[in-house]
């Protein structure tokens, strides 16, 4: 598909909401196969940066380059290559899992029913595929949301606090899926403030604090100690 890319470059991106500065001249690059952990305390600007990468939030200044091209050159086609999973599930609770996945597959021009069937299998809910989503547990809904975000096999996968409210088994499943995605050549960004979950999963760490990129480095063996040190310095 046209418009594919193997790197994402954030170049001097700032974003203000009125007088509040959510992001301040952030620059970083992520390449195919990397899992970049966007770490930082609540309100640091991680979700805003995820929004900018997803093209849902426009930067006040700076730009994001997908491959070597900016958003305005790529147009709506770019969104074929972006998948977003946030804490909010982006699913309709009144509809069944199958109806939700069929609808979102349709938005991406994927009409084949087997794509939805495979996604239901991966989510492990084939036997409850036609139940309304409102009857599902948080973990089951999150699994459907994960499949919804990945239906169109995006190159850039954006996870914003994907583990909130999940039990250990569900966390393990999402983490395994993240590793597979990276191995398949996806560029993965994961915003979280949970260091235990990020430890051993991310390949790079970008620490954001008060809208500024404090550090961008390979994931250290002792992520928690490094994080504490960086936050103290900032």
């Amino acid at each position: 598909m046209s418009g594919d890319f193997d790197s994402v470059r954030v170049v001097g991106v700032s974003r203000h909401f009125g007088r509040r500065r959510a992001l301040s001249t952030i620059s970083l690059t992520a390449r195919s196969g990397e899992i970049v952990g966007l770490l930082g305390p609540n309100g640091a600007g991680k979700s805003t940066l995820i929004g900018v990468l997803a093209t849902l939030v426009a930067p006040s200044s700076g730009e994001v380059r997908y491959g070597d091209r900016p958003v305005r050159e790529l147009g709506p086609e770019l969104r074929h290559h972006i998948g977003l999973l946030a804490h909010e599930l982006h699913l309709y609770p009144e509809l069944s899992a199958r109806q939700n996945l069929t609808f979102f597959a349709g938005l991406y021009g994927l009409d084949r029913q087997e794509i939805v069937d495979r996604a239901l299998e991966r989510a492990g809910i084939v036997d409850r595929a036609d139940d309304p989503l409102s009857n599902f547990s948080r973990g089951m809904r999150q699994r459907v949301a994960l499949e919804r975000a990945l239906l169109h096999r995006p190159r850039l996968v954006l996870f914003d606090e994907p583990f909130t409210g999940l039990d250990d088994q569900a966390v393990g499943l999402v983490a395994d899926r993240l590793r597979v995605l990276a191995a398949d050549g996806c560029i993965v960004f994961m915003a979280t403030h949970d260091l235990d979950l990020a430890d051993g999963l991310v390949t790079r760490v970008a620490l954001v604090r008060s809208g500024k990129l404090v550090s961008d480095e390979p994931a250290d063996a002792d992520l928690r100690a490094r994080y504490r040190e960086l936050v103290r310095q900032a």
Binding site: A54, T55, L56, P76, E77, L78, R79, H80, I82, L84, A86, E88, L89, H90, L91, Y92, P93, E94, F104, L107, Y108, G109, R148
Partner: peptide, 16 residues
């Protein structure tokens, strides 16, 4: 309905 689970954001991510 679109606000409840932030589905409007997912709609805006459609490649159209």
């Amino acid at each position: 309905r679109e606000r409840y689970a932030e589905t409007l954001r997912a709609l805006l991510l459609a490649p159209a």
